[in-house]
């Protein structure tokens, strides 16, 4: 049995707040986009989406601050030298090794809680998708201040399509994220870690150490 205190309180609070905002934005966004009044009435969905978007912006800024001051940023540094092999090993594990009880190629430690695949996707999501999604959301709110056209096309259409495309990509990320959580030593190992802060693995020294879910 190994125990590792991986997620400090601030990080867990941030994670779950982020999850809540994500869920709210997704549900209200879907309801607005497809005019699903039965899901969430339109006049509730719009202000909820606006407020959640603003809070998500603050939450993202808190994430940045936490990474810089709280030291969490080191988990998002990509080691380009080892990346190709790490990726190959990680992908091989997910498509083959995991079914034949191979040991996990990556071992969670205080210095490295994310495997190569996670590092890459989280960097893409948190430093790529997320700021763009937030930016396009604010552009919606303040479209009166935008130029009439962007790249020769009506600004609002460009903003709307960007927001839509990014939202779909974020949904895709959430689906994968939710599933990957279950690929720890047991299906709930990672979930429990994000709740208690402790990454607990039972037993044998050689056994497959699970992926972090941060």
């Amino acid at each position: 049995m190994s125990e590792l205190y991986l997620y400090p309180v601030w990080l867990r609070l941030w994670h779950w707040l982020n999850a809540l905002l994500f869920f709210a934005l997704l549900a209200t966004g879907i309801s607005m986009h497809f005019s699903l009044g039965w899901l969430i009435p339109f006049d509730v969905a719009v202000p909820t989406h606006n407020v959640s978007g603003i809070l998500l912006t603050l939450s993202w800024l808190a994430f940045l601050v936490g990474n810089v001051i709280g030291g969490n940023g080191k988990h998002y540094l990509i080691n380009f030298r080892t990346l190709p092999m790490d990726l190959v090993r990680q992908v091989r594990y997910y498509v083959y090794g995991i079914f034949v009880d191979e040991p996990h190629p990556f071992h969670v430690s205080a210095d490295h809680k994310l495997n190569a695949l996670q590092t890459l996707s989280y960097v893409g999501v948190m430093y790529g998708l997320m700021p763009l999604l937030i930016l396009s959301g604010w552009a919606f709110l303040f479209s009166a201040e935008l130029p009439e056209t962007l790249f020769g096309i009506g600004s609002i259409w460009v903003v709307a399509m960007a927001h839509l495309l990014l939202a779909w990509m974020m949904l895709l990320f959430i689906v994968v994220h939710l599933y990957i959580i279950t690929t720890g030593e047991t299906p709930t190992t990672n979930l429990k870690a994000m709740i208690t802060g402790w990454h607990r693995e039972g037993g044998d020294a050689t056994g497959g150490s699970a992926t972090g879910s941060g």
Binding site: M32, H33, S35, F42, D43, V46, P47, N50, V51, I54, W138, F140, L141, F142, S143, I156, A160, M161, H163, L164, L165, W168, L171, L172
Partner: peptide, 21 residues
């Protein structure tokens, strides 16, 4: 920003992106 209710249903609709998504 909070009370912005200028969103018009369908304004972000793109059948192509939606289908692919």
């Amino acid at each position: 920003a909070v009370y912005n209710d200028a969103y018009i249903i369908g304004m972000s609709r793109s059948p192509t992106i939606d289908r692919i998504g």
